[in-house]
Amino acid sequence: MRVIRFTLNGDPVETGVRTEETLVQTLRERFGLTGTKQGCDLGDCGACTVLFDGAPVLSCLMLSSDAEGHSVQTIEGLSNGEKLHPLQKAFLEEGAVQCGYCTPGMILTAKALLESNPDPSEHEIRRALSGNLCRCTGYTKIVSAVKKAVNSD
């Protein structure tokens, strides 16, 4: 057990973690941030994606201890009160959400993409999202949602 301090969705936090504890466990079990989903716990599906200093990481493959001093953003930290982030709004309006289990990871990955590449091509969008599996939509509407969010900015 060790105590770590990091920034979580903009707020300073402090918590004890087990040495082998992964970030997804800490977020879900210690902070109750269950929007971060655990689809495989092997780094295969992307459902547990969070932003780590702004970059997408698989929180099931990261030890919580490594968050010390860093900034973590989860899906719960994306909207501003009732005002949805443009990506959240676009996912909703485009019908890019079916079961929704991949959605938090998809949206955060897309956010990181748009921050580094504000006007991605369809291929760039598909490449960026290729670490996030979706079993429901066939991806078409997810890609259109990301395009829509680009145009809404």
Partner: peptide, 21 residues
């Protein structure tokens, strides 16, 4: 006409509770 998903906001904000949550 397009109707938005019933609990869509909960799903895009991470507040939807699945069994493991």
């Amino acid at each position: 006409k397009p109707t938005l998903r019933y609990d869509g906001v909960a799903r895009v904000t991470g507040h939807a509770l699945y069994a493991d949550d």
